[in-house]
């Protein structure tokens, strides 16, 4: 079971914010796998799953953005009716509460992933041990990060 890193960015809720962020990611050739936005009036938190999370984190930070890197679970779903239900049932049985969740579908709808944020990732992973769930593996998420990430952009 791998925990996957997710990038969260604090932003004012006004036009151009996503553009500003995605421009930086595009320039750095970082691929976005999934995006979700939580908003509360004037401000919001934009979350990205990307193929080079450490690099994305450093780049966004050096551009002066307010960024954080968090662990999430990416549970594999079968892309057919009842796929999410099966996973949700297990989470309930294991008393894993979802703080925040979003989905992304990979490889032209063969399979999807349910990304869930939980309070205590290690505890949740422990609770889910033994369940027949499949997870997104780090190597599938970050195919290009075998080389050490250059962090020359990080300012000081």
């Amino acid at each position: 079971m791998d925990a996957i890193k997710q990038i969260s960015i604090f932003a004012r809720n006004n036009p151009g914010q996503i553009e500003r962020i995605t421009h930086i990611l595009a320039e750095q050739k970082i691929n976005i796998l999934a995006i979700t936005i939580a908003s509360s009036g004037e401000f919001g938190v934009i979350k990205f799953l990307v193929d080079q999370c450490e690099k994305a984190y450093e780049c966004l930070k050096s551009e002066g953005m307010t960024v954080s890197l968090n662990d999430v679970l990416a549970i594999k779903l079968t892309d057919k009716p009842g796929g999410l239900y099966k996973v949700a049932k297990i989470l309930r049985e294991r008393k894993v509460n979802i703080d925040n969740a979003y989905m992304f579908v990979q490889e032209s709808r063969k399979q999807g992933y349910l990304m869930i944020e939980v309070k205590d990732i290690n505890k949740s992973m422990e609770l889910l041990k033994g369940e027949k769930l499949q997870y997104l593996k780090k190597k599938d998420c970050y195919p290009r990060t075998k080389k050490p990430v250059k962090s020359s952009q990080s300012g000081k």
Partner: peptide, 18 residues
């Protein structure tokens, strides 16, 4: 302005702070 170091990506924490 929120403090850069304290941002943990959690929306709830921001709403609580507000």
């Amino acid at each position: 302005e929120i403090s850069k170091d304290m941002f943990d990506g959690n929306m709830e924490h921001l709403v609580d702070l507000q």
